[in-house]
């Protein structure tokens, strides 16, 4: 053999497959997740290569993300400032932060239904935990978010907005990642089976953009503001947005975010337990 292959033989792993029901199926879900987390370096490399690939051959590379976000926010600022005579000092930091966060949500949710169906050839080539594909999508979108955060930081610096309660942003970020995983699993599984999901999801997310206080402030609603908590995106946005803008996040908002997260996770685990082994047959 040319050049001795260098990988030491580890203890032989055993693959034991048969149809699973009930708790054993749920056990397989957690096995899949642990397997994916042990392949985190692979997911990181895949997510990073996705971005690199998208901008291969371009001079500025991924900084196009930063620039296009900066242009959009600058243009919106100019329009709102000169046309509507809004108070940019309070509005533009809010708007830039909201749009960047919403960019992450909408891209991830739009990509979620094709997470498994788009990787058909990889999934048919070798056995790999399904969650690796989910982690890859989350990592890719987090990297994009990090490029856009630069613009928000610049706007904040320009208007001298000083974030407070930074400590409560940390659990919020954790909840974002946790929710992202559940949403990707759920929509990915449904999207692998029903090819109508991507257009359906993109129209729903478009409606959500207008219904959720993304470009308008929640304080615009006087009566019935509590109904906003039913919208799963509002509490999610608010737990990051409020502390960064120096406001205090209400307990009800955190509670709503947790309840939404719990519901979507229960659904995701149920679906994954039932359909994990079927994905390779569907795609």
């Amino acid at each position: 053999m040319s050049g001795a292959p260098q990988v030491p033989k580890s203890g032989s792993p055993t693959l034991d497959l048969s149809p699973l029901r009930g708790f054993r199926a749920i056990g397989a879900v957690f096995e899949d997740m642990f397997g994916a987390f042990s392949l985190l370096p692979l997911a990181l490399a895949l997510g990073w290569l996705d971005i690199k690939l998208r901008y291969r051959g371009s001079i500025l590379g991924p900084f196009w993300l930063t620039i296009s976000t900066a242009v959009m926010i600058g243009a919106l600022g100019a329009v709102y400032g000169t046309l509507f005579h809004m108070d940019l000092r309070s509005y533009l930091p809010f708007l830039s932060l909201s749009l960047v966060l919403w960019g992450y949500i909408s891209t991830l949710v739009n990509e979620a239904p094709s997470i498994f169906s788009q990787n058909a050839s990889a999934l048919h080539a070798m056995r790999m935990p399904l969650m690796v594909n989910v982690l890859r999508a989350i990592i890719r979108n987090t990297l994009i978010l990090l490029h856009n955060v630069v613009v928000v930081a610049l706007v904040f610096a320009f208007f001298r907005v000083i974030p407070q309660n930074l400590l409560s942003v940390l659990p919020a970020l954790v909840l974002w990642i946790v929710d992202s995983m559940a949403v990707c699993v759920l929509l990915g599984l449904i999207g692998a089976r029903f090819r109508d999901m991507p257009p359906l999801v993109s129209s729903v997310i478009q409606i959500c953009f207008f219904v959720t206080p993304v470009i308008w402030k929640p304080s615009l609603i006087h009566a019935g503001a509590q109904y906003l908590l039913i919208d799963p995106f509002y509490p999610l946005l608010e737990i990051i947005r409020a502390p960064l803008l120096g406001e205090v996040t209400g307990v009800s908002i955190w509670a709503a975010a947790m309840v939404h997260s719990l519901l979507v996770w229960i659904l995701a685990i149920g679906f994954l337990a039932r359909f994990r082994a079927r994905v390779a047959y569907w795609i």
């Binding site: 580890s10 055993t14 693959l15 034991d16 497959l17 149809p19 999934l123 080539a125």
Partner: peptide, 28 residues
């Protein structure tokens, strides 16, 4: 290779698997 899990019956494979199945062979 554990890509299609059995609809019925059982498959047991002991040892580290190498698979060369797909035309693209899992390469991008």
């Amino acid at each position: 290779g554990g890509i299609y899990e059995p609809v019925a019956g059982r498959v047991r494979v002991q040892g580290r698997l190498g698979t060369l199945l797909d035309a693209q062979l899992g390469m991008n």
